[in-house]
Simulated scan of single mutants.
Amino acid sequence: MTGMKKGAGEDPFADDSSTESATATEPQGETSKPEQAEETDSKQADDTETQQTRQQIQIPYKFRRDGVQDGRDRVPLFLQKETKVAERDALHEFEDRFEENVSLTDLREALMKVGLQHLDEAEECLEEWGYGMTFD
């Protein structure tokens, strides 16, 4: 491509030997450190802004994972018949509310997390099953 001005079609990522030679020929004592400091400060500000954005906009677990088992430990779960029926009914209820399919795995963990936030009610259930009974 003849006739083009220098720099018009050059690779912007190519090494620029003229910059390197100019830096090498600077008198001692004069460096480009103030420019480097400005670049570093600018990069740190950008990094801080990026971190704040990530904290403000956190992608929900449903969209971050590759599958429902991602980030979860497998634990056995054995349910009584009436609990299994209630779980199925709850699944249908949430699918109606969200107007989309709800993962049974997600529902089970959500129910577990809510139960952990309501230990007094869980205690009542355990007492119904016989926990805390003494036969003195």
Rank of each mutant, 00 (worst) to 15 (best):
T31A: 01
T31H: 01
S32R: 04
K33R: 09
P34T: 11
P34Y: 04
E35H: 15
A37F: 15
A37V: 09
A37Q: 15
A37M: 13
T40N: 12
D41K: 14
S42T: 14
S42W: 04
S42C: 05
S42A: 10
K43A: 08
Q44T: 13
A45I: 01
A45S: 03
D46Q: 02
D46S: 05
D46K: 06
E49Q: 11
T50K: 14
T50H: 10
T50V: 12
Q51H: 04
Q51V: 08
Q51G: 00
Q52P: 04
T53F: 08
R54D: 01
R54G: 01
Q55I: 11
Q55V: 05
Q55S: 11
Q56T: 05
Q56Y: 03
Q56R: 04
Q56M: 05
I57E: 04
I57Y: 02
Q58W: 00
Q58I: 10
Q58L: 00
I59F: 03
I59T: 07
P60C: 08
K62Q: 13
F63T: 14
F63C: 07
F63A: 13
D66A: 09
G67V: 06
V68R: 02
V68K: 03
G71F: 05
G71W: 07
R72V: 11
R72F: 08
R72M: 01
D73T: 09
D73H: 11
D73R: 04
D73S: 09
R74W: 12
V75K: 12
V75C: 00
P76F: 10
P76Y: 01
F78K: 06
F78E: 02
L79G: 12
L79M: 12
L79P: 10
K81Y: 15
E82H: 13
E82F: 15
E82I: 13
T83R: 15
K84E: 12
V85E: 03
A86L: 12
E87T: 05
